[in-house]
Simulated scan of single mutants.
Amino acid sequence: MEFVLSADKKEIKSKNLNISITEFVLLGFSDVPQLQWMLFGIFLFMYLSILISNSIIMLITRTDSALQTPMYFFLSNFSFVEICYVTVTIPRMLMDLCTQKGTISLLSCAVQLCFVIMLGGMEFLLLTVMAYDRYVAICNPLHYPLVMNNKVCVQLVAACWICIIPVVTGQTYQIFSLPYCGSNKIHHFFCDIPPLLKLACGDTFVNNLAIYIASVVFIMVPFLLILVSYGKIICNVLKLATSGGRSKAFSTCSSHLIVVVLFYGTATITYAQPKAYQSETLGKLLSLFYTILIPLLNPIIYTLRNKDIMVALRKLQTKLSTYGNT
């Protein structure tokens, strides 16, 4: 009798495993339904703040003649990537908070995942390029205009895109080639790698290995390059005779260094941590940190600690007030 019941359970489980999933359900913040509208208001305000602040940075770096330098060219590209990055995740999250459904098709989930990884990877690569720019500016100031000319800057940004697109496309295809035949509920507010792999029925060893390799290539290697760049920068700055020169050199790097620490800290915990030790609550919290809070803080960090941008903002404000009075 027990043998028959056991066989029936195995048969039912086998039938369930043969059911192919066609859509996922993003649970998001469904565990706190009483806070749905409050969270909607907070995230909407933060999203609009990110869009406006980064758009202003893009505007002043393109229009102000004093900001037509490689450093601000890369900052403008970084702001553009930030806008795209938050737009991939936050509007969908806001819609789910309104409808309280959270259903997302397999294709939509794949597209969202692809853009999240791609834009996130671009941010890491751009941070590395910005560190190299600061290294050349401080360690080789005489050769800086020649080394970091407009053509080189455009080529560096293009190289970042060329490197990241095929890798991310391959990763996404590999992840969605796995069979998803159990639960379709994703304990997250967007399609991300760790929660998706938890739902996969097949062997995910190859996928986890590919993720670790990609993490090393696009997170650890750039981070080491940034460390080397700043190590050389610090050595050169300490050799400067005047304290004013040292403080000016450090002030141009401090904003970038703060952003690097924030980005790499959360990314390392999220993607380099073994899958078995990843908590769903911690994963959501870290994701909120690097998808919303850091993009919100970045413009503040770059503007408040940068005199050139503050001057450009005052010029823009003067122009707008003059235009409004006419």
Rank of each mutant, 00 (worst) to 15 (best):
Y132V: 03
S177Q: 13
C160L: 06
K151N: 10
K101D: 14
I175R: 01
Y173K: 09
L146V: 14
Y144I: 02
V167W: 06
M122R: 02
V111S: 07
G120H: 01
N150C: 12
A137R: 06
I175W: 00
Q155S: 13
V167A: 07
L127G: 10
V168I: 12
T103R: 12
C163V: 01
I162H: 02
N150G: 14
V111L: 14
F176H: 12
G102F: 08
E123K: 08
V154W: 03
S105Y: 08
Y144Q: 13
H143D: 15
T172M: 08
V167G: 00
L156C: 07
C109V: 09
C160R: 00
L142I: 10
R134P: 04
Q100T: 14
W161K: 08
L125F: 10
V168H: 00
C153W: 09
V157S: 08
V116K: 01
G121F: 07
L106T: 10
L106P: 00
C98A: 04
A159F: 15
K101W: 04
C160A: 15
Q174E: 04
V152E: 00
A137E: 03
S177A: 13
C109L: 07
N150V: 11
R134C: 05
P166N: 11
I117A: 02
I117N: 01
R134W: 05
M122I: 08
F115D: 04
L126C: 09
Q112D: 13
Y173T: 14
T103N: 12
Y144W: 09
V167Q: 04
V116S: 07
F124M: 12
E123P: 02
I117R: 02
Q112L: 12
G170M: 14
M95Q: 15
I104W: 01
T169N: 12
F124N: 06
I117S: 01
V147Q: 01
A131V: 03
C160P: 01
K101M: 07
L127C: 08
V136C: 12
Y144T: 05
C139D: 10
D133K: 11
L107H: 13
C114N: 11
W161V: 07
P166S: 10
S177H: 13
E123C: 01
I164M: 05
F176V: 03
Y132G: 03
C153Q: 08
A159M: 15
T103Q: 13
K101I: 12
I165T: 11
L126K: 04
A110C: 11
K151C: 08
L106R: 13
L127F: 10
H143S: 15
M148I: 06
M122A: 07
N150H: 14
P141T: 07
W161S: 11
L178W: 02
Y173M: 12
C153M: 11
Y132S: 04
L97A: 03
P145H: 04
I175H: 01
K101V: 13
V129T: 13
